[in-house]
């Protein structure tokens, strides 16, 4: 079963990371899901694929009431991001799914009605969760053509989707990056191949470099914190992407 770890807490404002499933089938990529709680409501970032729903759901239930999940944030349209949507809707048919306008007519293939989807314009926007106003930060072409990250100004946490992702070997299951130089080798190939545009990458780096970020939380691999956040942004800025 996946573990549910609290990575930030300030009163009822909390971030939970649902990570590392030892029973995961080897052919399914490991994913991190993040739950942001505030004022009795919660939002789930990239809830994951349909096949890993039992693992995510049971880990989440161990920590919190699944009925409180009032919204889902889908950074983009991939099946490992959002194909479990129909099952989350089983628990809350009124749940809102925030995603790029580009995908709001594609994601209904995974479930939901016209009322389920809240389309985000290209420039982003705010997403209310309890007492919070989370910010959808544009990250188009990194890697999806309609792609957003989610910033929590209060917690100083940026959910960065596939940016920062690392395909770690099974024995490296730390929640946080411990040794940046050793870690980044597992991110390099992924970023070169999955990120399609150097121009888009440069814009993203410029955008997030001026944000106050304590933790950068990717969908795969370990979380960057403290100085490793700026270190990662610099590394990414230098990397040539969109090549085989």
């Amino acid at each position: 079963m996946k573990q549910c770890r609290t990575i930030f807490q300030d009163g009822d404002h909390r971030w939970l990371a649902i990570v590392r499933d030892p029973n995961r089938a080897g052919h399914v990529i490991d994913t991190n899901e993040y739950l942001i709680e505030s004022g009795g409501d919660s939002l789930l970032c990239d809830p994951g694929g349909i096949e890993i729903f039992p693992a995510v759901f049971s880990a989440l239930c161990a920590e919190t009431d699944p009925n409180r999940v009032k919204a889902i944030f889908a950074s983009h349209q991939d099946p490992d991001i959002i194909s479990s949507l129909a099952l989350w809707l089983d628990f809350n048919p009124g749940l809102k799914c925030y995603t790029s306008w580009l995908w709001s007519s594609f994601l209904p293939h995974f479930g939901g009605t016209a009322e389920t989807f809240a389309s985000l314009p290209d420039e982003g926007g705010s997403i209310p969760v309890g007492d919070l106003d989370l910010e959808a930060v544009p990250a188009h072409y990194l890697h999806s053509s309609g792609n957003f990250h989610l910033y929590d100004r209060g917690a100083k946490i940026l959910f960065s989707g596939d940016v920062g992702a690392a395909l770690l070997p099974p024995e490296q299951d730390d929640l946080f990056v411990k040794d940046f130089d050793q870690h980044i080798q597992y991110a390099a190939g992924f970023h070169r191949r999955w990120m399609g545009s150097n121009e888009a990458k440069r814009r993203w780096c410029e955008r997030v470099a001026v944000m106050n970020i304590d933790m950068l939380c990717p969908q795969h691999g370990a979380i960057y914190q403290g100085e490793d956040v700026a270190r990662f942004i610099d590394w990414f800025d230098q990397l040539t992407v969109g090549i085989l």
């Binding site: 079963m1 349909i50 729903f53 039992p54 693992a55 759901f57 049971s58 239930c61």
Partner: peptide, 11 residues
């Protein structure tokens, strides 16, 4: 089927 697995996983 997946919902059933999820409930069973909650032990």
């Amino acid at each position: 089927r997946i919902l059933e697995l999820a409930v069973l996983a909650c032990e």
